[in-house]
């Protein structure tokens, strides 16, 4: 089993977003970056499959600036065998099709049985690089998987749907996007961190497709009115119900 996981470096979910002077992007100072949480789940799943099958290779692949190397090192420390870095300082401006095409152009030169992505990168929340990638490689895509089993070159997956899940059978190779619930990602072990330094790390340069989307502006969401305390304990309940009825007119 050779498995490719597509991973992205994103601002930590703890970040308070500040908009940069250009009014279109994120102010970088003071922002701490992490491996996108759903990509972490995707990588964990790849590692578990490899461990189960006892062979093959897990490759972590990213498009991003020089700093994305740190994200790839995290993946190697978690247990990926190899990292490929498509270097691009403009990555933050590119649209999902351009990112998907870049990933596809590199993946076409690799041997793989399975590609795992996150359901969405928790910065742009585009939720489409995985599906775009699948069409460019002409292989099936299933999003939001919460369970994955492999046998005889076929995968059986659970996919979250409203009020439950569906069970799908998919021929491999295929692209899946990981939803929370698929697994609990491991932490890199000290041994993992040490051995990461010796693992293969490839850098690539590719040509990017022109963007079909242009970001005109970034702004803060409308601010909420300052919080208001109605009261304390059960004595305040009638007042709360009255406000919901008469002021907010909700119930």
């Amino acid at each position: 089993m050779n498995i490719i996981t597509c991973v992205k470096r994103v601002p930590s979910t703890e970040t308070n977003i500040k908009i940069a002077k250009d009014g279109k992007s994120l102010e970088q100072t003071g922002v701490e970056y992490i491996l996108s949480p759903f990509d972490e789940i995707a990588l964990e799943e790849a590692l578990r499959i490899k461990e189960r099958f006892g062979g093959g290779e897990v490759i972590a692949l990213t498009v991003g600036p020089a700093e994305s190397a740190t994200t790839l090192r995290t993946c190697l420390a978690m247990g990926a065998d190899k990292a490929i870095h498509i270097k691009d300082t403009e990555a933050y401006k590119r649209d999902p099709f351009a990112i998907g095409s870049a990933l596809a152009s590199v993946i076409k030169g690799l041997q793989y049985n399975l590609i795992l992505c996150g359901k969405q990168a928790v910065d742009d929340d585009n939720a489409q690089v995985g599906s775009i990638l699948s069409r460019l490689l002409n292989i099936p895509f299933v999003g939001l998987i919460t369970k994955l089993e492999i046998s005889d070159n076929k995968a059986t997956v659970h996919r979250e749907i409203s009020g439950g899940y569906e069970v799908l059978e998919v021929s491999l190779p295929a692209v899946f996007s990981a939803q929370k619930g698929l697994n609990e990602p491991r932490y890199p072990s000290l041994k993992g961190i040490m051995s990461a330094k010796k693992k293969p790390f490839e850098e690539k340069i590719v040509n990017f497709e022109a963007s079909s989307l242009e970001i005109l502006k970034m702004e803060y969401p409308p601010s909420r009115p300052a919080g208001r305390i109605v009261g304390k304990g059960v004595e305040a309940v009638p007042e709360l119900v009255k406000l919901l009825k008469e002021e907010a007119k909700i119930i």
Binding site: N16, L26, D124, L216, K217, M218, P221
Partner: peptide, 14 residues
């Protein structure tokens, strides 16, 4: 919305 709603972008489709 981006960053799960911590900011909102305006995007033009070309």
């Amino acid at each position: 919305p981006v960053y799960a709603g911590k900011a909102i972008i305006t995007v033009k489709v070309i």
